[in-house]
């Protein structure tokens, strides 16, 4: 029956659509196709055009080439960085900090988010505290982290965990609270024991929110990485940028920025792909 109803609707709408398009815009179609092709072309050219313009500007003499080196110089600096073997260790150190901090911060965030979302008493105890601490930018903790941890890895980890935790906690907390009460009632009527409600209904119901929080936390972990490495360390992509800045190796500085951007971009895309599989029913 529903199929029949759909067929009726389908029979009607195209006719109506045909009437309207036939009446008021017969000449638009081909030009909109041309526009689309133009958009694709411009999109492909976007980055090459930018790089060419950059190269020309740097070499034109309008700007100081030492402070604003052309892309070719930046590329040479990056190649040199790779050849020296430092690149690998810098990337490894940074990735380790981001990954460890992200995993630890997320685990804590999800755990406490479930507790505060599920149990009003825990929420009354912890939520006010978290809401006061959450708005303080993690970067502002750098001085005290140096006092507490010196230049150790523990301090770096602390900063990234701190940054990641609050975002993941909040999204998990909201996700748990937003689980459709109708689903819980339905599950109760089907004989789901209350102690199994968490794994059967609440975790899965909150999952879409948790995944959004985790994805935001990926970029936050990179922000806090910058603060952590600027606070002083012995290897890392941002550390290398800072050293190059002190030596006035502007090409290396820009190369470092590009590397950081690329790593962060790949991390975000990987996570987006992973997220799509995590929420498999969408």
């Amino acid at each position: 029956m529903e199929i029949g109803a759909e067929a009726i609707v389908q029979n009607q709408t195209p006719k109506r659509a045909a009437v309207t398009t036939g009446a008021d815009r017969p000449g638009r179609r081909p030009s909109s196709g041309r526009f689309r092709r133009l958009n694709v072309l411009v999109g492909v050219l976007s980055i090459p055009l930018f790089i060419i313009l950059w190269e020309l500007t740097s070499r034109s003499g309008i700007v100081n080439m030492v402070l604003f080196p052309p892309p070719t110089v930046v590329a040479a600096a990056v190649l040199e960085w790779m050849r020296s073997g430092q690149f690998f260790w810098d990337v490894a150190a940074s990735l380790y900090r981001v990954t460890a901090g992200f995993l630890l911060g997320s685990a804590l965030g999800v755990l406490l988010g479930i507790l505060t979302g599920q149990f009003p008493v825990v929420s009354s105890l912890l939520s006010p505290l978290f809401q006061i601490l959450r708005p303080i930018p993690p970067i502002a903790f750098v001085p005290i982290v140096i006092l507490w941890f010196g230049l150790s890895e523990a301090g770096k980890l602390f900063l990234v965990v701190w940054g990641v935790f609050f975002t993941v906690w909040l999204s998990t907390h909201i996700g748990v609270q937003k689980v459709d009460r109708g689903l819980i009632r339905a599950a109760l009527m089907l004989g789901t024991p209350r102690r199994q409600m968490l794994q059967e209904i609440i975790l899965l119901g909150a999952l879409p929110y948790i995944v959004v929080g985790l994805r935001t936390a990926v970029s936050i972990s990179f922000y806090t990485l910058v603060a952590a490495e600027l606070a002083g360390t012995f290897a890392g992509v941002v550390y290398r940028i800072e050293i190059a800045q002190q030596n006035l190796q502007t090409g290396q500085v820009m190369g470092g920025l590009a590397a950081l951007g690329l790593i962060s971009f790949i991390a975000d895309r990987l996570f987006a792909a992973l997220a799509e599989r995590t929420v498999w029913w969408r």
């Binding site: 109708g182 009632r185 339905a186 599950a187 009527m189 209904i201 899965l204 498999w280």
Partner: peptide
């Protein structure tokens, strides 16, 4: 019990 909304588990 059957509710007004199906309340099926979406996952």
């Amino acid at each position: 019990m059957v509710f007004q909304q199906p309340h099926l588990f979406p996952w």
